[in-house]
């Protein structure tokens, strides 16, 4: 039996909300970055599901680009994190206020 498209979209929505919860309420910077990965992955599910149901390659190509940009983002974010911990010795989101945000 076929799975309707809306189920895939609902799965993407649920994962997106969980990831957003992690970004908004967790205190550990590492877990915040992991939740960011979850957000990007739920968007990928949507891209590929729409691409499959409309028989269009552009969904998959977009997903490939999203994965590539995610890899770049994680490398830079973890580099910043290592530099931050070396200077300030904290992993808590609310204690990093160098830029007065």
């Amino acid at each position: 039996m076929m799975v309707p498209l809306s189920w895939y979209i609902v799965l993407g929505v649920v994962l997106f909300v969980i990831g957003a919860a992690g970004v908004l309420i967790r205190r550990n910077i590492l877990v915040v970055l992991m939740s960011l990965e979850l957000l990007l992955n739920s968007v990928n599910i949507n891209f590929i599901a729409f691409g499959h149901f409309y028989d269009d390659f552009r969904g998959r190509i977009f997903a490939i680009f999203v994965i590539a940009i995610t890899a770049a983002e994680v490398a830079v974010a973890l580099g910043i994190l290592v530099a931050l911990v070396r200077n300030k010795a904290t992993l808590k989101v609310d204690e990093v206020a160098i830029m007065k945000g």
Binding site: R26, N28, L81, V82, L91
Partner: peptide, 17 residues
């Protein structure tokens, strides 16, 4: 990165105060 950093104090409090 998790291994390189010291995570012991960060895991005491999960959520933002």
């Amino acid at each position: 990165v998790t291994m390189m950093l010291d995570i012991r104090d960060a895991e005491l409090q999960r959520f933002l105060p």
